[in-house]
Computed example of a mutant assay.
Amino acid sequence: MQLLSSQITGFIENSSWIRKMFESGIALKKQYGADAVCDFSLGNPDVPAPAMIEDILTDLAKETNKPFTFGYMPNGGFPWARQIIADLVKKEQGVEITADDAVLTCGAAGAMNAFFRAVMEPGDEVLAVAPFFVEYGFYTSNHQATFRTVMSKPDTFELDVDAIDAAITPKTRALIINSPNNPTGAVYTKEELTELAAVLEKHTKANGRPVYLIADEPYRFLAFDGVEVPSILPLYDYAVVMSSFSKNLSMAGERVGYIALSPRMKDRGQLINGLMLTNRILGFVNPPVVGQHMLKAALDAQVDPSIYERRRDAMAKVLSNAGYDFHLPKGAFYFFPKAPGGDDVTFCNRLMEEKILAVPGTGFGGPGYFRLTFCVEEEVINRSAEGFKRAIESLA
């Protein structure tokens, strides 16, 4: 008896390498103890949320005089929460937007699914710059569209705008970029993005309908060494920012995110109305009530980025001393080194023998590399040094 659709069966069989390695880590920790395993598999922020998160939860639990309800609200979130998002985007993107240009969602994943449901026709295409966050492909398939990728430049992971230009077809409805990038740590420059915007504008005019530029930005707050994360909304009429508060407020489990549209977009009110509808009919109903109150309290007090910068430097030292070939990440909390020997799956299995958990780059559309997260304590990073050395020396 077939209980699942063939598509979902296929998704399960090809499920995320991140989860596979995470589950392997659970087994290793049971066998050897958590202190013996160096787990760099899951990008789950471990830095505590700002203190005022606890304060707002305490106030809500005590039922203070603050106006609060668990009831239904407008599909796009509380009006005051939409205004908060508009003010945030105005500050980050340097554009004049209003609350009417933003919608609260159930995380960035909910935002992307609501957007695709609103704009996709069966048979449309979504492009993503590879390496990429693996679930983009699943979100695309949810809406009867085809997912395709365009590789970034080798090793530096810069945008290959010429390759993107060549990959766009009349069926292309959207291009996803993620900067700072998961898994590479790359941050695209304003020059790259300006060139990209010109290419998308050309195809939008030729195709007679928008090619949307989706900027997935949960790591915007986390760039190192003074690197600028350029604003995308001023560069292109059909730019869309999607983000969440999973990383900058360490609220990954609360699932609060948003969509904001470029104020240059014509008829954007029509798209906002569509997002209001799809935000509901996909079953999300409304963004979490408690989460909206939490972000209101903590938005100006994000986690300390210097914690991650120290961890990045510690990981770079470990990898350099062991002889790995890698590009120093400019943002986010990931390294994406080359896999010694070239086979990323085999090498990640070799690391597991050293009780080190990494994720094969194959899972991100980047075979020949592997991903390491550094959202773990420095002690774990430093403890991994000898294991990394033994693993690479075993291939010499």
Rank of each mutant, 00 (worst) to 15 (best):
E386P: 02
A27I: 08
L60E: 15
F40C: 07
A260F: 05
D165G: 02
A260L: 04
S24N: 15
N178C: 09
I12T: 07
Y136K: 07
Y72H: 10
A252H: 07
Y258C: 01
M21Y: 12
A174C: 02
A391W: 06
N286V: 12
L357W: 12
L372M: 15
A130R: 06
Y72C: 08
L328W: 08
I177E: 08
D237G: 08
L200R: 01
R312L: 09
A339I: 02
T278K: 03
E393Q: 11
M21R: 15
D300L: 12
Y236C: 00
A339T: 04
K330A: 12
D325T: 13
P170Y: 01
V303T: 14
P67E: 09
L3W: 06
L249C: 09
I214T: 02
K66H: 11
T69C: 06
T172S: 03
Y308W: 14
I214Q: 01
D39A: 05
R390Y: 03
M315Y: 04
H143M: 05
R390S: 00
K202C: 04
I12K: 09
A108P: 00
S152D: 01
I392A: 09
Q302N: 14
T58P: 02
F115T: 12
T172Q: 08
R82N: 10
M1F: 11
A396K: 14
A215H: 14
L159R: 02
E23R: 11
P288R: 10
E201N: 12
G257Q: 07
R280N: 14
A49L: 06
V103M: 15
V290A: 14
E13P: 02
F336A: 11
F11P: 00
P230L: 04
L351M: 09
D304I: 06
D313G: 08
I85N: 11
F11G: 03
D87H: 02
E54F: 14
E54P: 07
N65S: 13
L277W: 12
L249H: 12
Y188A: 04
N207D: 03
P183K: 05
G363I: 09
R280P: 00
T373L: 05
V103Y: 06
V376H: 01
K296D: 12
Y139R: 11
N382Q: 15
P183W: 02
T105I: 06
A391M: 05
K247D: 13
V119Q: 00
C375E: 10
A358N: 07
